[in-house]
């Protein structure tokens, strides 16, 4: 095989990986602040994907233009979940939170099955088959837009946490929970905002990803697992780590599909997880517990 093919596939994997990274960023933000693992993460992404599919089928609205409204809907869903469902469980043992979120995930998968049926659905935009040719490289235009959109959303989130007062207050809660209560931060509201932001991330990722892959309800659990792998590989609680982990897994899956068979791609993602756990258990960009 000529070398360009490897490069083409790697770039394609990198662009898809950025979207994976955005999805995992949502999980990482929620865990980093609220200390709850969102086991319904992939399922929430499929809800966003079906929203994008429905909006496109009914009104011919491009998923990339619908990215913000869809992220907004998922924000509200996440805010409501944290405020009314998870907050009462926040001081309960972890397995109780686990069962709660697994229950939510099962309800979401089956709700989508009832509404949309089990068949794969997708979105065919006018630019579905466009591509950019740079020298010998041919890059799928859809994936370029997808990767760029993921970078823009992630950058907006980073800026929010770095510069806005509310973003700083959320970081303060993650830094020292009791300290946040002592200075009079409304921790319950900030937690709900954080869960909403994490859900908005995964909503944006879903709106983008629908351009690249077909959606079926069982995709949800698979992507919850993928988001979890990415976050562990990148480093729990590290926001740049989630993006980097997404890119790493995206490129690995793409190359594994080329060199072996596409059905073996998850095996390689797991192999990376095992290697990271063996040699750098805190994740690539995670901080070692002191």
């Amino acid at each position: 095989m000529p070398a360009e093919i490897y490069l083409n596939v790697a770039i394609s994997g990198l662009l898809t990986g950025l979207v994976y990274g955005l999805m995992a960023l949502g999980l990482s933000v929620i865990f980093g602040v609220v200390r709850v693992v969102n086991f319904a993460h992939g399922e929430m992404m499929t809800i966003a994907m079906y929203l994008a599919v429905a909006l496109f089928a009914s009104f011919k609205l491009d998923p990339l233009l619908m990215l913000l409204p869809i992220a907004g809907v998922l924000f509200l869903l996440g805010y409501a979940m944290q405020n009314w469902l998870i907050t009462p469980f926040i001081n309960r043992p972890e397995h109780a939170q686990f069962m709660l979120l697994i229950a939510v995930a099962i309800i979401m998968v089956n709700g989508l099955l009832i509404v949309f049926g089990p068949d794969a659905q997708n979105v065919q935009t006018s630019y579905s088959f466009d591509s950019f040719a740079i020298g010998p490289l041919i890059i799928d235009a859809t994936k370029v837009y997808a990767g760029l959109a993921a970078i823009v959303v992630a950058a907006a989130l980073f800026a929010f946490f770095k510069f806005s007062l509310t973003g700083k207050a959320i970081r303060a809660c993650a830094d020292n929970y009791t300290g946040a209560l002592v200075v009079g931060l409304d921790v319950r509201r900030l937690y709900a905002l954080t869960f909403g932001l994490g859900a908005a991330c995964v909503g944006a990722a879903g709106a983008i990803l629908v351009l690249i892959i077909d959606v079926t309800p069982p995709l949800g659990p698979a992507f919850t697992l993928l988001a979890f792998i990415i976050v562990i590989v990148g480093g729990l609680g590290s926001m740049p780590g989630a993006l980097l982990g997404g890119v790493l897994i995206g490129v690995t899956e793409a190359l594994a599909g080329l060199l072996f068979t596409p059905s073996a791609k998850s095996m390689f993602a797991f192999a990376i997880l095992v290697l990271v756990l063996l040699f750098r258990p805190e994740g690539i960009m995670g901080k070692r517990a002191s």
């Binding site: 830094d175 002592v182 200075v183």
Partner: peptide
Amino acid sequence: AEGRLVFPTLTVSENLEMGAML
């Protein structure tokens, strides 16, 4: 509070801003 409970990864000025969120 006992043990000071400052926000270690926030800067000094960000810590002070947090006090003024009320």
